[in-house]
Design a protein around this nucleic acid. Sequence first.
DNA 1: CCTACCGATCGGTAGG
DNA 2: CCTACCGATCGGTAGG
Lengths: 202, 202
Amino acid sequence: MSAAAPLRPRKAQIDRTATALFRAQGFAATSMRELATALGLEAGSLYSHIKSKEEILHRVCFGLADSFFAGFAAATHETAPVAEQLRQAIVAHVRVLTHDSAASAVFLHEWRHLSEPARREFLALRDRYEGAFRELIARGVAAGELHTPDPAFAALTLLASLNWLPNWYRPEGKLTPDEIAHRLAEQLLSGLWPHRGSTGPA
Amino acid sequence: MSAAAPLRPRKAQIDRTATALFRAQGFAATSMRELATALGLEAGSLYSHIKSKEEILHRVCFGLADSFFAGFAAATHETAPVAEQLRQAIVAHVRVLTHDSAASAVFLHEWRHLSEPARREFLALRDRYEGAFRELIARGVAAGELHTPDPAFAALTLLASLNWLPNWYRPEGKLTPDEIAHRLAEQLLSGLWPHRGSTGPA
DNA sequence: CCTACCGATCGGTAGG
DNA sequence: CCTACCGATCGGTAGG
């Protein structure tokens, strides 16, 4: 959760290029020689900047986790109505997903290639993040602002909808990230039945 | 979309075992030697049953596509109200996901390791399936049975929620597949706002 | 950052 | 279905 020290430029460039390759081909199917070629150098030279292939994956996965937690914390101020906090948490989550959709895709799909204990630590962080959404929804239900028979189920479904975004989001598309976020929030909060308006419960 | 000929038992066993490994470790990170060991034979022996590693992936991905299309077709009879057709399509989709969640996970995540032209054909099938949901939702909106500003967006979000299921579904869990399906349908149709009841629009 | 290389492992095949 | 093996490629290192 603490901010990581800034990376040296070359190291940051390696991470960025590797992230794009990991996203497109998967971690296991991406070779260090491919990565080196994409960076214009020889395979062996990578190891004067990094220790291992997995180190890159580790940094990407845990860096994104930091971003998601930071966004959630900033979005949920206890003074606002819970439903509004949830809406802001959705916006924050979507901002992270759209701001670095390649890293998000790696975060979402490639974490399983982390070896222990990093893999376990990663899953614990993910569970904690899901738990934060679950508790927010549960508080909304308790306050009568939200309705669902199962906040845990609702949290999973909500995050699933959001996390599909890196699969289709294109920065050059006609909707801005915040427009996408508000539309997602709208649909998840209001459902698909015809309803009485879009700004809150009746 | 046509039903595939039944596989010889050994071939079906190879597919099942490979599917479990592909799901757990990913296609690229699973070796044919691992697969052979899991089946109690030597690596070379696999090739008297199959032609290549990718052939297995191909069969799994396209077989699941067949199942999804068949379920959708059976669920959507023009005589029912569109909202009810959508609900049944959700149930059918969830049945496929839960009936073979390992194959579903491979279908959802490993298709990118198909080489051309199979990869392109697979994506065309997936697009067609998404399109069927999109058109169903659009018909519901036209009939006044559903509401959304963007049926394509709604279809993507709906399928994303459903497709997260293989990540957490456990056959030994307390909810049956049909209970899960109805709960998902309920949440996606009604949203999280407090509402007037769960069986349809007011 | 490169050259040269390590041992290990990969998907797949020949021949039986 | 096994034995024995192919060429290719893998992540990573030594030494400069």
